[in-house]
Simulated assay, not measured.
Amino acid sequence: MKTERILLVEDNPDDIFMIKRAFEKAGIVNPVDVVEDGERAIEYLNSYSPVLILLDLKLPRISGFEVLEWIKTREKLRRIPVVVLTSSRNGRDVNRAYDLGANSYIVKPVRFEDLLDLTKHINIYWLMLNEKPEV
C-alpha cells in the first residue's frame, strides 16, 4: 500500500518542530516531509505528489504565493489540496492565497494545545473525510 505523505513547507525551525510534534501527538500516521524554502518545495513537487500540502507564505528564495501559483498551474499537482498555514492575518494575503487557488487559509495558533486541536481537524477533514482526486 502506498503511503500518503504530507508536505510541510515551512522555514521556521520552531514551527516545524511544533507542527511535527502536534501531528505525532494527534496520532496522524502519514509521514510529514519538510522543506524549508520555496525553491526546495518546487524541487520536491517535481518528484513527489503528496496527499496534502501545508504551505507557509513567508519563505526564503521563492515565496509561498509563488509556490502556490506554480502548483496550481501544473496538471499533475493542481488538485492536491493546499492549506496555507501562516502567521499573516492580512486580508490582502488571505485574498491573494484564495485567488491563487488555496483550498484553505489558516493562521498558525500560538498555543500548542490549539495547534494540536488544529492538526486533529486537519486529519479528520483533509485526510479522512475529503475525497482525494485521482492522480
Score class of each variant (00 low, 15 high):
K2Y: 05
K2W: 02
K2V: 09
T3A: 10
E4T: 06
E4Q: 15
R5T: 07
R5G: 01
V9F: 12
V9I: 15
V9A: 12
E10S: 11
N12P: 03
P13C: 10
P13W: 14
D15M: 10
I16P: 07
M18F: 13
I19C: 04
I19D: 01
K20T: 12
R21G: 03
A22G: 10
F23E: 00
E24C: 08
A26P: 05
G27F: 05
I28M: 11
I28H: 07
I28K: 10
D33P: 02
D33H: 15
V34M: 14
V34A: 15
V34P: 08
V35L: 12
E36N: 15
D37L: 07
A41Q: 12
A41E: 06
I42V: 15
E43S: 14
E43D: 15
L45T: 02
N46Y: 02
N46H: 12
Y48N: 15
Y48D: 11
Y48F: 13
S49K: 14
S49L: 12
S49G: 13
P50C: 13
P50V: 10
L52E: 09
I53H: 03
I53F: 08
L54K: 15
L55W: 14
L55S: 09
L57S: 03
R61L: 15
R61P: 00
I62G: 09
I62P: 05
S63I: 05
G64F: 00
F65V: 05
F65H: 12
V67C: 12
L68S: 05
E69F: 02
E69Y: 07
I71R: 00
I71S: 01
K72I: 04
K72D: 09
T73V: 11
T73C: 08
R74N: 03
E75G: 03
K76M: 06
K76H: 05
K76I: 09
K76C: 01
I80L: 04
V84W: 01
V84I: 13
T86I: 08
T86F: 04
R89G: 00
R89N: 07
R89M: 06
R92T: 04
R92F: 02
V94P: 00
R96F: 05
A97M: 13
A97Y: 04
Y98C: 10
L100G: 01
L100Q: 02
G101H: 13
A102S: 04
A102Q: 02
A102C: 06
N103L: 09
S104E: 13
Y105I: 00
V107E: 03
K108A: 10
V110F: 08
R111G: 01
R111E: 14
R111N: 07
F112C: 06
D114C: 05
L116T: 04
L118N: 03
T119N: 02
T119E: 01
T119Y: 00
I122V: 00
I122Y: 04
Y125R: 09
W126R: 04
M128W: 06
L129A: 10
L129V: 06
N130T: 03
N130A: 03
E131W: 08
E131Q: 14
E131D: 11
K132I: 04
P133R: 09
P133A: 10
E134M: 04
